[in-house]
Simulated scan of single mutants.
Amino acid sequence: MTDVETRLAALEDRLRALEDEREITRLILSYGPLVDSGCAEAVAALWDEDGVYDVDELLMDGRPAIDAMVRSANHQRWIAGGCAHFVGPPHVTVSGDEATAVGYTLMILNRDGGFTLRRATANHWTLRRTPEGWSVTNRTNRVLDGRPESPDLLASHFPGAERV
């Protein structure tokens, strides 16, 4: 391989890494607008067919369960009353056809003419590349209420990071 071919291959690898990170970030950031607009099928389609969404108060196993959560009376009441799932920018790590990401989500509700924070959560995502693009295999959320598992979830994304 010539120097030019080596440099071109390295550049292609770097570009693919940036494109993967961008696609994953866009997928994660699409969750909030999709779930707050009640697009149940589109929300469920972010996950693999047998993907898992593990929230403190609910474990959803597979796309049908995720779709049902968005269609549920409780979730529809939040939308009707004014609701925002604000997803902060994720920290994404790609390794071949697998990826992880961590970040935060705030769930904000319109109540009594003002907005209140219902919960702030730590999020850990695992994803995989499919022929159609990146897909969520697992998303785990834990409320940031002082329990150790919430910061542990965030730290697990960073190899060698130790909590004090």
Rank of each mutant, 00 (worst) to 15 (best):
P89M: 14
L109Q: 02
P90C: 14
H85C: 07
T93P: 03
H91I: 13
G96Y: 10
R111W: 02
L106D: 06
H85V: 05
G82C: 07
N110K: 07
V94L: 13
L109N: 02
A99C: 08
V92T: 08
G82T: 01
G81F: 02
D97C: 13
S95E: 07
D97E: 15
G88T: 06
F86Q: 11
A84M: 06
H85L: 11
A101R: 02
G96N: 10
C83M: 11
D97W: 13
C83D: 02
A99N: 08
M107T: 04
H91N: 10
V87G: 12
A101T: 08
P90M: 14
A84N: 01
A80V: 04
T100P: 00
A84Y: 03
H91Q: 13
Y104P: 01
Y104L: 15
G103F: 14
A101V: 03
F86E: 11
S95D: 04
G81W: 02
V94S: 10
T93V: 10
D112N: 13
D97R: 15
C83S: 09
N110S: 08
H91R: 13
G82Q: 03
S95I: 00
V94W: 11
N110T: 06
H85F: 06
R111A: 07
R111I: 01
M107N: 03
D112M: 11
G113D: 11
A84L: 04
D97L: 14
P90Q: 14
D112A: 15
H85G: 00
Y104G: 09
T93N: 04
T100V: 10
G88F: 12
D112P: 02
T93S: 12
D97K: 13
P89R: 15
A80S: 11
V94C: 12
P89H: 15
I108T: 03
G96E: 09
H85R: 05
H85W: 08
G82N: 04
P90G: 15
V87L: 14
G81Y: 02
T105N: 09
M107F: 06
V87C: 15
H91Y: 11
A84V: 02
G113W: 09
G113V: 07
A99W: 12
D112H: 10
G81L: 01
D112F: 10
Y104D: 12
V102K: 00
H91T: 09
I108P: 05
A101L: 09
Y104S: 14
P90Y: 15
T100C: 06
R111V: 00
V92D: 12
C83R: 02
R111N: 00
V87T: 11
G82S: 05
A84E: 00
N110P: 01
F86S: 10
V102W: 05
L109T: 00
E98D: 08
C83G: 00
G82I: 05
C83K: 03
V87W: 12
M107D: 07
H91G: 05
G96S: 10
L106E: 06
I108F: 04
L106T: 05
G96K: 11
L106W: 01
H91L: 15
R111E: 04
N110F: 03
P89T: 14
L109I: 02
G113N: 08
A99V: 05
C83A: 10
V94M: 13
F86W: 13
G88R: 09
G82W: 04
A80E: 09
N110Y: 00
T100Q: 08
A80F: 01
T105S: 14
S95H: 08
